[in-house]
Design a protein around this nucleic acid. Structure first.
Length: 270
DNA sequence: GTGTCATGCGTAT
DNA sequence: TACGCCTGACACG
């Protein structure tokens, strides 16, 4: 389930197990055989997350492993005794203590540091990178865009790390209709959106799932007590009542991705 | 068991 | 705008 929170969580977890360690590596599926052969036996300096991208730094050689999970990619961390890797594993990498198992990524490639910088350069601010305030930057990028804010939020060069779930939920939380022209969203609203992104993605990174609903509104004591059907306000809730006002959640397609909103909380003419 | 859809994105048209 | 890539979950029968 890869939006930015998943990627940062993966980096944190993988650093815990593999940072500073010499990793053996191979590609059961074969599509990363050359890369695995090159990296195998190298010491992994650290894992960095930026938006939905992961960069594995090998400072001794300068090699960078770039992974993007896309829609289907998944990591597993396994403890010994290691089970047989699935034949479709793009790579497995391991020490004596743990094994990292990757399947189904959109990107798994070797880069130079320059190649990594080029990818980072085209990403907008990432709410999960500490110490960044992206509001001004985002506002400037949107200044000349008449296209809908609902499209802009999935553009990784505007803001890095949001996916379709956070898009719908954040727009609900700030009360913006997804079809609002991006350049008509005032800086204060962008600021609100940015701050909420930080808050919500942090919650997602900690818990490992996207939970935007305030548990008190559902009469629950904590986020952890919410059922899978109670965690979101809008995403995939077409035809259901808004949790706050009871109006019917509606949906539409933007660039062949679905989006959901509450007509009352997110009027087009705000 | 089969079919559809999905938290993504690059490339071709 | 459409398609291809890649996998797993779930609805349906």
């Amino acid at each position: 389930m890869p939006e930015g929170h998943t990627i940062h969580r993966a980096a944190r977890n993988q650093n815990k197990w593999f940072k500073g360690k010499v990793l053996e590596m191979r590609s059961p599926q074969g599509r990363f055989a050359d890369g695995a052969a090159r990296l195998s036996g190298q010491k992994l300096t650290k894992v960095e997350a930026n938006g939905k991208h992961l960069f594995y730094r090998y400072m001794d050689s300068g090699d960078v492993l770039h992974v993007h999970l896309g829609l289907f990619g998944k990591f597993k961390i396994r403890k010994p005794p290691f089970p047989e890797p699935s034949p479709n594993a793009r790579f497995i990498a391991w020490t004596d203590e743990a094994q990292l198992h990757l399947a189904g990524p959109t990107a798994c490639e070797l880069l130079t540091p320059e190649g990594m910088d080029a990818i980072k350069a085209r990403l907008g601010p990432d709410p999960l990178v500490a110490g960044v305030n992206g509001a001004e930057q985002i506002h400037q990028k949107l200044a000349r865009r008449k296209s809908p804010i609902g499209r802009a939020l999935l553009d990784q060069s505007v803001i890095a790390g949001l996916g379709n779930v956070y898009r719908a939920e954040l727009l609900f939380l700030v009360g913006l209709h997804p079809f609002t022209p991006a350049n008509e969203v005032p800086l204060e609203k962008i600021s609100e959106l940015w701050d909420l992104s930080v808050t919500e993605l942090k919650i997602g990174e900690k818990s490992g799932r996207i939970v935007t609903v305030d548990p008190a509104e559902m009469g629950k004591p904590s986020r952890a007590k919410l059922t899978r059907y109670e965690r979101l306000y809008c995403y995939k809730r077409a035809g259901k009542p808004c949790r706050r006002c009871g109006d019917t959640i509606v949906s539409a397609e933007v660039d062949s991705r679905k989006i959901w909103w509450c007509p009352t909380h997110q009027p087009l003419t705000a």
